[in-house]
């Protein structure tokens, strides 16, 4: 009875993973399919991977996406980390309001933030394009960095910083030499989150992009509408591969460092 129960439980878990991975596996499989239509598998080919590197528009969209993701992640990680520390350490007028405001981008529907930013850009006569895209991505990323950093900050014991002050270190020095290394896991996970959110954003980019600033998700959206070609499958297979490599190496490094610590 207990054993049967266990098989059923494992079966359920397997089903969930099947659901999660099925569309991805299908896309990877079809990226090697000779037929253009993505309907039946005819025979194996690398053609689409070769085609991918000739698809100028797709590569340009990829480049734009990377620029936006890198810049917005860098800016939002720095501002977000600073903000988390400031909001914890200092009191200032309107702090309560700021503390409430930063949750808004996390909780309201993305589309509302998208149209709100679009309206304001129009109000201030900003040219829609790379700049507005980066600004928008910064806008929705910062809150995620703040919450992520804040969760490590609250666990931080104030004694470390106190010790640094006692030893005569200044504020800035203490921050960079003591606080920052200690909250680094929060900073990194916040930054990673910002990066992945930026890479994948459809809704907000849809409203704030302009001519010449097509991002990969927007390009793929229009391709899905006009008939997708398998080079998109190839591109996503490659991106998936990169993601897996990065994740595996992070896990590997983490487990290594845990082992090391265990030895000491």
């Amino acid at each position: 009875m207990e054993k049967k129960n266990k098989t059923l439980r494992n079966l359920f878990i397997i089903l969930v993973y099947t659901f999660l991975y099925l569309p991805i596996v299908i896309l990877v499989v079809f990226s090697f399919n000779a037929s253009k239509m993505n309907i039946v598998f005819t025979h194996f080919t690398f053609e689409w991977y070769a085609k991918l590197f000739q698809n100028k528009d797709l590569l340009e969209a990829f480049r734009n996406t990377m620029i936006i993701a890198v810049v917005s992640t860098a800016v939002s990680t720095v501002i977000g980390t600073m903000s988390a520390v400031v909001l914890q350490k200092y009191d200032f007028k309107g702090k309560d309001l700021v503390n409430k405001l930063i949750y808004i981008p996390i909780v309201i529907p993305e589309i509302v933030l998208g149209i709100a930013l679009l309206s304001v850009y129009t109000l201030f006569h900003l040219n829609l394009g790379m700049f507005t895209l980066i600004l928008s991505h910064i806008a929705f990323s910062i809150p995620f960095v703040i919450t992520s950093v804040r969760s490590t900050l609250t666990q931080l014991s104030p004694t470390y910083e106190q010790a640094a002050y006692d030893l005569g270190a200044g504020k800035i020095r203490t921050f960079f030499d003591v606080t920052l290394p200690l909250i680094m896991p929060g900073v990194i996970s916040g930054g990673t989150l910002a990066f992945t959110l930026s890479l994948d954003d459809v809704v907000i980019s849809y409203f704030t992009a302009g001519p010449g600033s097509n991002t990969l998700p927007l390009k793929i959206y229009s391709m899905i509408k006009t008939g997708i070609t398998p080079d998109v499958n190839a591109l996503s297979s490659l991106m998936l591969l990169v993601v897996i490599i990065v994740l595996v190496s992070i896990t590997y490094i983490q487990s290594k460092s845990i082992q090391k610590r265990g030895k000491v």
């Binding site: 810049v71 860098a74 800016v75 509408k225 006009t226």
Partner: peptide, 27 residues
């Protein structure tokens, strides 16, 4: 960060100098 900012600026500046055409057409 400084490097990125410079990169960003050079991106937006270089755009002005290349010849461009902004077209909207039916899919």
């Amino acid at each position: 960060i400084l490097l990125l900012l410079i990169l960003l600026m050079s991106c937006s500046c270089s755009k002005e100098t290349t010849r461009e055409l902004n077209v909207l057409n039916w899919t």
